[in-house]
């Protein structure tokens, strides 16, 4: 068999996964895309192992390791996503922007006057404790019943 077939398939699969990682909004979907990329790497490893007839079977052994690590990764990743979902009320990657630079025309760090109070609470509503509490509550209820 031509090595080009698995190699090209792996390359294309990798790029598909790449697209998924860059384009998907839901964190779980991103994790799935990461799995696709990892599998592309695995395919390459296996193909090259077969081609090279490595006596150590380095390719296949590494594939096994990769699969194991991927399993660990997905477990941890999902735990993180679930926790984020529980605390933030969303699993959308592009809404988790606590690390972003605040907008230049935004409010000053502290409330400057009496009028600033309600505005403050309004603008903070996406991350305000009220709405995620209900969401988290329902999610917790479901998880508890499982």
């Amino acid at each position: 068999m031509h090595l080009a077939y698995p190699a090209v398939l792996a390359a294309l699969l990798f790029c598909v996964g790449l697209y998924g990682v860059l384009a998907r909004r839901n964190a779980v979907l991103m994790l799935m895309s990461v799995e696709l990329m990892l599998n592309a790497v695995n395919l390459n490893l296996v193909a090259f192992d077969v081609w090279l007839r490595d006596t150590l079977h380095a390719g296949q052994a590494l594939t096994l390791f990769t699969i194991t690590i991927a399993a660990a990764e997905i477990g941890l990743g999902l735990a993180i996503v679930l926790m984020v979902f529980r605390t933030q009320g969303t699993a959308d990657i592009d809404r988790l922007r606590e690390l972003s630079e605040p907008p230049a025309d935004g409010l000053p760090p502290g409330p400057t006057g009496a009028e600033a109070g309600p505005d403050d609470s309004d603008t903070a509503s996406p991350a305000s404790p009220a709405s995620p509490a209900s969401l988290t509550g329902s999610a917790q209820g479901k998880a508890g019943a499982v």
Binding site: Y19, L22, A23, R24, N26, V28, L31, D92, A139
Partner: peptide, 30 residues
């Protein structure tokens, strides 16, 4: 993964916001 999707309340049917605004950049890059 399915477990996680269900716990994050994946809806039945299309989610119009499944792709972020980055998709065209991502497509070009990919």
């Amino acid at each position: 993964v399915l477990f996680g999707l269900m716990l994050t309340r994946a809806p039945i049917g299309r989610s119009p916001d499944a792709d972020s605004g980055n998709r065209w950049v991502a497509l070009g890059l990919a």
